[in-house]
Design a protein around this nucleic acid. Structure first.
Lengths: 115, 115
DNA sequence: GAATTAGGAAACCATTTGGTTTCATATTGA
DNA sequence: TCAATATGAAACCAAATGGTTTCCTAATTC
């Protein structure tokens, strides 16, 4: 029974470009902090903090190997995002619903000054 | 030639739960600010600011009708998110790659103290 | 035309965020 | 054992974020 409620959610976690890049990096392979830091132009401490946030969102796991801490991706929490996104599929994949929407709009409001 | 570089990107826009709720609301139908505000427990001004951020990310459009401003969803920018997400599909939909990963890990490093 | 209604703009505020530097601790390696 | 290495923790800081209140303008309605 570790942490039931994550302190950072996945939406927040991926909001930062550095963290998105981190996820990409760690999807290739497990990496210790020092190697990870080499891919960024910020201090090791800053990278470490981003890793913590990803970890709190469950997107990354770490294990100690000797004196280094290796991080790797855990993509599972991205499911939530995918599910959320799926709801909006009909709004751009199915253009028909959009079209119907606009037609109704024109009819119900003749004072339309949109254009 | 309006704004080539949006001030807020879609990742940032959906990071806030209020804004995600807004997108859900506006997917049903176009709505004026006052009606939208009724669905939240914050001031109209605060809601208005969230709408602005969504608009800057291209996720929402507005049109003036009389004295009211009606907002509606534009889901198109969510494609970017969907594309980004797609890259990670193999990491949880195809469990084989994950399995292979763990096996290699055990072999190459006997000092594993993960558990 | 005066009062009401819808909404944006500006100033302000507390908290969060993304970064830094500095210090402490554990593991190696000579 | 002692120096070097890898990392985390803590204190600090500027800027961004999410809210509020107060004021202004444009439509609407009586």
């Amino acid at each position: 029974m570790s942490q039931a409620v994550p302190k950072h959610d996945v939406y927040q976690a991926i909001a930062d470009p550095t963290r998105r890049k981190l996820l990409g990096l760690l999807s290739d392979k497990e990496m210790p902090v020092k190697e990870i830091t080499g891919h960024f132009s910020m201090t090791r401490t800053a990278v470490s903090k981003h890793l913590r946030i990803l970890e709190e969102a469950g997107l990354v796991r770490d294990r100690k190997v000797g004196r280094e801490t290796r991080y790797r991706l855990d993509a599972e929490p991205l499911k939530e995002l995918k599910d959320w996104l799926a709801y909006f599929d009909r709004f751009w994949e199915n253009k028909l619903s959009m079209l119907r929407y606009y037609v109704e709009e024109q009819q119900e409001d003749p004072s339309d000054n949109d254009k």
